[in-house]
Design a protein around this nucleic acid. Structure first.
Lengths: 205, 205
DNA sequence: GCGGGATGTTACTGGGGAGTAACATCCATG
DNA sequence: CATGGATGTTACTCCCCAGTAACATCCCGC
């Protein structure tokens, strides 16, 4: 069933991920994606009804990969939301710093596909909402006094770092994401300590 | 000399600003810009050597408008960097919240024009560097103990808010920019107080 | 009024990209 | 080995877009 270790559909999605991310969605033709996948346009259109369809699947896959990251972080530090939060920030900032500085592919897609009716928008919106909700929950579980506010700060810091890497590059504030986020965590007040919860700076009065 | 209150070049730049911002640069044809400007492609090409040229001028103009905002803020609160900082944040967050939620046009352009050699990249990079440097200076003048760190936090918060408005919309953390930034300012430690400088929370020990 | 520079109009070229049709080929399964 | 579904190949249509050419028109300053 698999001639080339991977079936065309998977190779196409792989190529789309590389090209759409690095060069932008509108800048990459369907032909280019098919060629990079070692196949051709015809086969591509047998698996995806249109370019928009391919884009939607490309974004869905990215969203799923992000889910996987969250899950790995969770299972790497079970019952330790503080460690989960740190690990997550470490991953995100490392990811943001290496991957050719092209920021978040979902956010980039939102910039490129401005039409409100574009099918990709639903995927992007759902993903970002979920990310934020997870962040809030994680901050709450980690025992912070104002989880929504802290989560929003972190969320904007992360989004800002990823987008600003594309304009100011590595020398800009984007590459300092982890240090900045860590400082915020360190200084954020915790909820009134319960037995078993480790207290931190600025304990509630 | 002016038939229509504005000469074609100005009308074209005006139309470009509206269209490129709202729909994206790659999504808008030169024809569409010319038509929206009440003129035609031929006249457009008599004023701009190419679409890339028009894009560069479009971005330059935006950068200049931003300079104007900084200047207005400065002269509205002379010798009061604290007030300048607040006014700036208020302007930016208000701007971010209304203008159709399409974020920062310079940052968007960086997403759309990924090729490192694109002439627009220089304009974008220079603009963002200048913005950050001005923020650092303003934070320093306002008497904060760690101006670079505070400025980077604010910078990423702003960039994050603008980009996230495009994916999560008004209900997301982007619309809370001013409150979040203000809280950061309120809690940031000041430098050792000099006579005349107003002391704030977390004074140096 | 008249000349000339700026602007408008039309039509064109060249190129590329989305999507499709018809046919050839492969290859696993029976 | 035969068959059928998946894949490859080629060539095509349609459309849009960047950029240009040639000519018509306007309108300001003289």
């Amino acid at each position: 069933m698999k001639r080339d270790a991977l079936r065309p559909r998977e190779r196409i999605l792989l190529a789309a991920r590389a090209l759409f991310y690095r060069e932008g969605i509108r800048a990459v033709s369907v032909d280019a994606v098919a060629a990079a996948a070692g196949t051709n346009k015809m086969t591509l259109y047998r698996h995806f009804a249109s370019k928009d369809d391919l884009v939607v699947d490309y974004l869905r896959e990215l969203s799923a990969r992000s889910d996987g990251l969250w899950q790995r972080v969770r299972s790497a530090h079970p019952d330790d939301p503080q460690a989960q939060l740190r690990a997550l920030l470490r991953q995100v900032s490392r990811f943001a710093d290496e991957l050719s500085g092209r920021g978040c592919p979902l956010a980039n897609a939102a910039v490129e596909l401005a039409e409100p009716s574009h099918p990709a928008r639903k995927v992007i919106e759902a993903h970002k909402r979920r990310s934020r909700a997870r962040l809030v929950r994680l901050c709450r579980d980690a025992g912070y006094a104002r989880p929504e506010r802290l989560a929003d700060e972190l969320f904007l810091l992360i989004e800002g770092a990823r987008v600003s890497l594309q304009s100011v590059g590595r020398e800009g504030p984007g590459s300092r994401l982890y240090a900045l986020a860590e400082a915020l965590l360190h200084e954020a007040p915790m909820k009134a300590a319960r037995p078993g919860a480790r207290s931190r700076a600025h304990p509630a009065p």
